[in-house]
Design a protein around this nucleic acid. Structure first.
Lengths: 210, 210
DNA sequence: AAAAACAGTGATTATTTTATCACTATGGGC
DNA sequence: GCCCATAGTGATAAAATAATCACTGTTTTT
């Protein structure tokens, strides 16, 4: 399988995108127009090249009938990743983790545990971020943060219960001093615990839908 | 959406199976031969009927270009999300996206399609971000971006091939002007296409492991 | 320096493919 | 009985489309 020139990459990319977008293959004319050629022959040449290099199969004499000879990507997952299903909460009510009704979840999400950086058999869940208090850490309003219930270490981003609402903050544990929470946004003050710190879990990963 | 006759069901089923098996749509002749008709007009009649009933869209005057418009009966059960497995690339080599050797993937990730914001049956993949060119969009070095091959619109974040390497940039398409790429980092210049833009797909979501 | 691969124009031909006309026949419903 | 949707045959026109030939450059490789 030879290497492709830039033009051939473009050609193959266009074929791919077109067919996935529209559901059928482009005709040679449509390819020509897309690239702004004046002759269909320029297209034919590239298709031949792609065919010779083994990236493409054209059915001779038939319109719009190519076939990209890709290596079967659907290889059976070699060591299938373990996927777990988690509820997504808009807010984690007091009393967590016990006593959460199934209906409190606003959604569900499924990710594999390795990508999410969590351990199995923990009661992980996801939290939909509200507000911009962690914006300097790259966590935006609307992001989903996957939370693993665990004891936090210094520097971890945690879901914490403050005034009955769950917020995302960075957990700071200075030596010889009580821990406190810090927002990653210059406009927000540090939160020294007036009474008690209720940490609901450590943020392990972020999923943002663009 | 009217009911289909037996013949029409057979027709629609054949279209679906054929396109799935072969990768392109059958011509009217091929349909005729499959059903053993003696006239192509019999096929045309059925295609019209299917179109009138809203199951099919034919692009007039173009060969082999249909589109099945009805929702696949296998609607994913609402309570179990559909999870797909995607390769993770550090860089998408030439010849994208086909012809990628299995070994080119540096990892795999599994997410449910709704959380990832992608459509089923697209050959989506993930890309490990290198560099800080999208830092102002909240995409950091080391993030995994889930890419769906598609034609970009103005403002989409896309994976683009520049000098043989894949980078993440924002796609800008001004009216009446050629599109260009823009990094989301003040220290980076705009990238006006010197030759041509190879867009490998649209970024749909981000997964960051903390 | 020569050869080979790459990239393309322009024109022409052959074929595939869709579209359309006229016509036959069957069964259901008002 | 009559109308209408369904299901076809057969032929022909119109278009979209692929394939081919001859030729001009450029770049890369030998």
């Amino acid at each position: 399988m030879g290497n492709l020139t830039l033009r051939q990459q473009e050609m193959l990319g266009f074929l791919q995108v077109f067919s996935q977008e529209r559901g059928f293959w482009p005709s040679i004319r449509e390819i020509r127009d897309h690239f702004g050629f004046n002759s269909t022959n320029a297209v034919v040449g590239h298709l031949r090249a792609l065919e010779n290099k083994g990236y493409l199969t054209c059915i001779a004499g038939q319109a719009r009938s190519y076939r990209i000879t890709y290596q079967n990507t659907e290889t059976p997952p070699s060591d299938s990743l373990e996927v777990i299903d988690m509820p997504v909460y808009g807010n984690i009510p007091a009393g967590f983790p016990e006593g959460i009704e199934q209906g409190d979840a606003i959604d569900r999400i499924q990710v594999d545990i390795r990508s999410a950086g969590i351990r199995r058999s923990r009661r992980s869940f996801a939290l939909k971020v509200r507000g911009d208090s962690m914006i300097d850490a790259g966590i935006f309003d609307g992001d989903m943060v996957i939370i693993e219930p665990a004891l936090p270490n210094d520097g971890d981003i945690v879901a914490a219960l403050i005034d009955g609402a769950t917020t995302l903050k960075r957990f700071i544990k200075p030596r010889q001093k009580p821990p406190y929470l810090k927002a990653e946004n210059e406009n927000y003050p540090e939160l020294h615990p007036v009474s008690e710190l209720v940490i609901q879990g450590i943020a392990r990963s972020i999923v943002r839908k663009l």
